[in-house]
Amino acid sequence: MPIEEKVVYYAAPTLAGCKVANLINLTKTICCQEDLDECRRRLCGAGIDLKILRENASSCLLYIYRRSALEELLHTKQSRQFLSSYGYQDFTIPGALDQLADHFKNPALFPHEVGLFLGYPFNDVVGYITHQGKNAKLIGYWKVYDNEEAAKETFCLYNHCRKELCARFHQGEALADLSALG
């Protein structure tokens, strides 16, 4: 599956403007710098960017995000207080993402604060950390600890985005046009 097809499939909610960001784990055969640069070029007009958060010999972890939504999220008092407790000091997009990438470098500790960067509900991010991933009320795109009904609606929305954007992509619509929908 080429990189653009993976981006459409795994980041459809972000492309559609329904979500702050998505993570995609790509094999090195797909994650070449030339293809990433081309993907970035096609998405930049829609306010979408990407950053490799972790890379090893066989794969890379790609973060695809809407710049305006991430900037808004990073500027809330709640987000700043939460991220400060994990050592974040720079709340600009480049600074925060560099710190997140640094946190991914420790293979022994997964940076669960990434849930905030993905736009998951704050109470669910905190709930996941507090309960160490156990005792969730619902599991879907994330583990839900607070508002099940809202999460179910969001999961349906994300599924709809994926179905709709994948269908359009397979009909020949360009990645840049799909991301302009958001």
Rank of each mutant, 00 (worst) to 15 (best):
T14S: 09
L15A: 00
G17D: 06
V20H: 11
V20E: 12
N22I: 00
N22S: 03
N22Y: 05
L23E: 04
I24M: 14
I24L: 15
L26Y: 05
L26E: 01
T27R: 15
T27L: 14
T27W: 10
K28S: 13
K28F: 05
I30Y: 10
C31Q: 03
D35F: 13
D35Y: 13
D37F: 14
D37C: 11
D37A: 13
E38F: 09
E38W: 01
R40M: 08
R40P: 04
G45H: 13
G45D: 06
G47E: 03
I52V: 15
I52Y: 07
R54L: 02
E55T: 07
N56G: 11
N56V: 01
L62W: 09
Y63V: 09
Y65V: 11
R66V: 09
R67P: 09
A69Q: 13
A69L: 01
L70K: 05
L70C: 03
E71N: 14
L73S: 10
L73I: 12
L73F: 01
L74N: 10
K77C: 00
K77P: 04
S79F: 04
S79H: 01
S79P: 02
S79Y: 02
R80M: 10
Q81I: 08
F82L: 15
L83C: 11
L83R: 03
S84N: 02
S84A: 07
S84F: 05
S84Q: 00
S84L: 11
